[in-house]
Simulated scan of single mutants.
Amino acid sequence: MTEHRGEPGPLDDSDAQILTELREVYRRLDPVPATLVDDIKYSMTVRLLEAEVAELMRMPAAQVRSESGDRFDSISFSGSRLSLMVSVSAEAAAADTTDDPGVRIDCWVSVGGAVVQVRTSGEAPDVERSQVCDENGRCVFTQVPRGPAHFIVWPTAQKDSAPTMTPTIDL
């Protein structure tokens, strides 16, 4: 057994052996139910099927499509229970890096205390982050990777009612 030197060090072979034995104890005494993963997936699917899909607020055709490929910095979605406005701005890159820092997303929901979740997918690893809005319905996400994203909004922090989902947009 390794001596304790005050500061934890990297895991070694004895640590791996202890963790393996501990996993085996739990496997024998309190095994994961065989259907647990399927039950969780089913519950999540049913919950999302109850979600309302917010409508992208109408814009004049000239603003929806342009030959220059201009990006708009704000967009609004409306559902029967709430509305969401999203403002997207570029994050400032650090002087010592060439990496794209992503975008900043400012959100305003018509319901104070709502939970907003942003989910991205694309070339960068997928991101899923949540924020609880303040009493004015505002929340902020920073360093969100560019690419396709959609939002899921629950009217309350307890997530006890069906959420509202937005169509996918490109950040």
Rank of each mutant, 00 (worst) to 15 (best):
S130N: 13
E135S: 09
S68A: 11
V127G: 02
P155W: 01
V127P: 00
F141A: 02
A54H: 00
E55H: 15
L84R: 02
P145G: 04
D39I: 04
V111N: 00
A162Y: 04
E55R: 15
Y42S: 13
H150D: 05
D39G: 09
G137D: 01
Q143R: 06
G137P: 00
T142W: 10
D126R: 15
R47T: 07
S68R: 08
V64T: 12
E123M: 15
Q131N: 07
P148G: 05
V53G: 04
M59H: 09
D73G: 04
T35V: 14
S83T: 07
I75D: 00
D73T: 03
M85I: 14
M44I: 15
A54T: 03
P125S: 15
P33E: 08
Q131I: 07
G79A: 04
S161N: 07
D126G: 15
M44R: 15
V153N: 01
D96V: 06
A51W: 04
Q131R: 10
D99V: 15
I105Y: 00
V115C: 06
V111E: 04
D70E: 10
L82R: 01
T97R: 09
R129T: 13
P33Q: 05
A95N: 11
F72P: 14
I105L: 06
L82A: 01
T97L: 04
L36T: 05
S110C: 06
P101M: 05
V109T: 03
E50W: 11
E128Q: 13
A124K: 09
F151W: 04
P145C: 08
C133M: 01
D38E: 13
S80T: 12
V132M: 08
R81F: 10
R146G: 12
W154Q: 00
E123G: 11
A51K: 08
G79I: 02
T45P: 04
D73E: 12
E135I: 03
A61S: 11
V140W: 05
A149E: 01
P145D: 03
L36P: 06
P31Y: 03
A34R: 14
V116K: 01
A61T: 06
F72M: 15
A95F: 15
D99W: 07
E55W: 14
G147S: 03
A162I: 05
D70Y: 10
M59D: 07
L84S: 02
G112K: 00
R119E: 12
L49N: 12
S130H: 08
P60F: 02
R129S: 06
I40M: 15
E55P: 10
T45D: 11
S78K: 13
V32H: 10
F141K: 00
R104W: 08
V140M: 08
V53Y: 10
A95D: 14
Q143T: 05
Q131A: 13
A124F: 03
S66D: 14
T120K: 06
A62F: 11
A90G: 01
V88E: 03
V144W: 01
D100N: 05
W154Y: 05
M59P: 10
W108I: 13
N136W: 13
R47I: 08
T98W: 14
G113Y: 02
G79N: 03
S110M: 03
V153A: 00
D70L: 06
T97H: 09
V116E: 01
